[in-house]
Every structure is written in C-alpha cells, then in structure tokens.
Simulated assay, not measured.
Amino acid sequence: MKFDKSYFNFNHDLYLCLAYDPPAQSIYTKNLSTDILQLLEKDILHFKSKGDVLLCGDFNARCGNLLDFVSSDSTDHLPISNDNYPVDFNLNVRNSRDTTVDTRGKELIELCLGNQIRLLNGRTLGDSLGKYTCYNHMGTSVVDYLLASDSLMQNILYFNVSTFNPTLSDCHCKLSWKILSHHFLDIIPQPNSKVMGSKFKWQENSPQAFQSALQDKDSKNLISHFDTSSDINELAVKLNEILLTASKKCLRRPSPPKKSSRKIYTNKKFF
C-alpha cells in the first residue's frame, strides 16, 4: 500500500507491507519453492528505490536481542573513499523479553543489516521493553514485528504491543503505531448548507403526522430531486431540507422560555 508523500507531507513516499511467514518447520514452508524472506528482500530493494518501507506482520522469527544495525559503522575501513557506502547510524539498543534466537531470527536480522531496515519492537516509545507478542501452548515469544526504513525511524512516534485478547486472535497480540504526518484538510464551507436552528417537540402522534407530511406535494418534490449519485455534501444539504420542510408542517416547536416576572430593583438600599 502506498502513502503519497505530497498528501501526507512525508519526505518520501511510504510503502506499507503486511507480511506472514509460516513457521520454518511447517508443511506449507517445506512445500514452498522460494523462501518468503528472500521474496520480501526483493520487494524491499524495489520499493526502497522509490521511497520508505514499512513492514508489519508475523514472521515466526525469534531475534532475541541481536543488533539489527552495524555498531560504530564508518567508511574508515574502506581502502578508497566511497560516498555510495550507506553508513549505519547508531540507534538505541533494542530490548526483548524473548531472549531466544532461532535460525529464522538470524535470517531476519541479516535482512535488516543488508537493507538498512530496523525493528521497532523494544526500542520505541510504548514498547521499550520488547513485550511478548505471541502466547500459545508452547509458551511466550516475540515473533510479530514492525520494521521500518532507517530514514523513517524519526517519524515513528509510538509503537505498542496490546495485551493479548483471545477474541481478536488465537495467540497473537495486536500491534499498533503512530507516524508523524503534516497533513492538513482544507475544509471549504458549503454556502447552501442550512442549520436547523429551532428544535421540534416529538409527541405521541408525531410519527403518523411526520409520515403524512413526507407524502405531501412539497416533500415529494424534494425527494424526487434526491439523486444518490450527487456529492455527499450536497446530499446532506438536500436531506436536511427534506426533513426540515416536513417538520415545519407537522411538528410543534417548544415554547420559548418565559421571562421572569420578578422585579429587580437595582437601586434598592440595603441599609
């Protein structure tokens, strides 16, 4: 899914991918002709050339506390100056309550290192400890991740692993996040919109009276011009006009509040 930079005022277009990689030992994985992480890496390379990348899903990978960036990276080790070498910036150390590392986890970390993609779990406001994301009969683990382009990290305001809810999933927790955007909606006032100023009293006979009012000549004329293919704002104005016209013909308005008859003497002496 593409989020246009001109609409959201991002520095680059944003491409979101929702992913699922079955367990490494599952029959489905064994029958695959291509590794899913390899397919993801090809897509990452393709879309990173167009903008920033954000991936979220169940990767069935346990990464423990492995670093997903090259610590103290620089170009000093290169024999010649190379401006095309992408230097990794030092990030906050990623925490995880799941310290187990499996083969899939190492592969996911290699994907991050090779493409400057970073894990948000365990280092972002809202999940500084790296909460468990999966609860099943085998125990607890962290296998669901949010991954982002290195250049997108500063725009991630919040990341949260919700408390496990068996109503929403068999064993996984919901992941949610917030991204900084500078999008503004230009609200154009509608010159033809009418606001129902006065209230109407709804009495015991009002339903029958209102239905009858909708059947009269004026109401039928308005209803006949109610075209559902029109703009939504225009439809709202027309619907309001139909209801207001019928209401004025059959419903009573509440009586205005009575003014107090008590006289107020402003110059009355109090001594």
Rank of each mutant, 00 (worst) to 15 (best):
L129I: 11
N267V: 00
R252V: 04
Y7H: 06
I242W: 01
T99L: 13
C250S: 08
A213W: 03
Y7W: 08
Q25M: 02
L222A: 05
D68F: 05
W177Q: 06
I179E: 09
G197Q: 12
F159K: 03
H12F: 04
K178P: 03
S141D: 04
D76T: 11
V142F: 02
D4G: 02
T245D: 04
F69G: 03
L111G: 05
K220W: 00
T167P: 00
M138K: 14
D88G: 01
K268V: 08
I36F: 06
Q208G: 03
L152H: 08
N11M: 07
L214M: 09
S224G: 00
C56A: 15
C250M: 08
A209E: 15
N192D: 10
F200T: 05
D68N: 11
K259P: 05
D216K: 11
L152C: 08
C112K: 09
F47H: 13
T245C: 11
C250N: 09
V237P: 02
L39T: 11
G122M: 10
D52H: 13
A61L: 04
D216P: 01
Q38E: 15
K131M: 06
M1N: 04
I80L: 13
D83G: 03
K5C: 06
C63D: 06
L120E: 06
L147Y: 12
Y145S: 10
Q208P: 00
L18W: 06
Q154C: 05
S149W: 07
F89N: 14
F210L: 14
D58I: 02
K217C: 03
A19D: 04
K201C: 13
N160G: 00
